[in-house]
């Protein structure tokens, strides 16, 4: 495992932990899209089903279990926690996730490495992760609310994307037979949707800054 890959995993993990800590500390999830968080949970579950079939390393097993449980923990807070659930912008967070899930599933049936149960699900999770942030993007465009989305979270999420791309470049040049077009293409799209999200985050941040200044 190279340093980019490891750092990428760590920043990804930290971004989720930061989000969880923020929710816990403020007892609020205002501005956070439950639909995006649920899509991430679907992504993790469908990708990490191979926990039951293939063993790669202890590191992989532990990280997969942490990703799955932390994403469900965020969902639990947003749906079930007595106080946090009341701060969820239910009326604004209306993105139809079926518009993302169904096309991604169709695509994974058509374009995959191997037509098998786990492989199709794995491919589906790769496609879905690329667009999973869209409900959050739409919520941000509607409300300009960045209460729960701290700059730490945004930075860590961006670092994760950048480091994973460096990891692919590094692996391509250092490993024989390492090429994976499905992951590269969706990963690039995912980074592009993240950049869009980042742009609206900055926009909302500046808008909020202006509002809080005395006139």
């Amino acid at each position: 495992m190279n340093i980019f890959r490891f750092a990428g995993d760590m920043t990804h993990l930290c971004s989720i932990i930061v989000l969880l800590l923020k929710i816990q500390a403020t007892k609020s999830c205002a501005g956070l899209s439950l639909r995006t968080q649920e899509l991430y949970a679907i992504v993790f579950v469908s990708r990490y089903l191979d926990l039951f079939f293939t063993f790669i390393s202890m590191y992989n097993v532990i990280m997969k279990l942490i990703f799955i449980s932390s994403s469900f923990c965020i969902i639990w807070y947003m749906r079930c926690h007595r106080i946090v659930a009341q701060t969820y912008d239910r009326e604004q967070d209306t993105f139809r996730v079926a518009f993302l899930v169904v096309p991604c599933f169709m695509l994974s049936l058509m374009i995959n490495h191997e037509f098998s149960f786990t492989e199709v699900l794995w491919t589906f999770s790769i496609y879905l992760e690329a667009v999973a942030i869209l409900p959050q993007l739409v919520l941000l465009q509607r409300t300009f609310n960045i209460d729960t989305l701290t700059s730490n979270y945004i930075f860590l999420l961006g670092a994760y994307r950048a480091l994973y791309m460096l990891n692919w470049i590094y692996r391509y040049f250092t490993e024989r037979d390492y090429s994976q077009w499905i992951v590269w293409t969706s990963g690039t799209l995912q980074t592009a949707t993240y950049c869009d999200f980042f742009y609206y985050y900055i926009l909302s941040w500046r808008k909020n800054e202006r509002l809080s200044l005395p006139s």
Partner: peptide, 10 residues
Amino acid sequence: CTELSRHDEL
């Protein structure tokens, strides 16, 4: 690429 290298990333 091999089966393993494709699935060793998270």
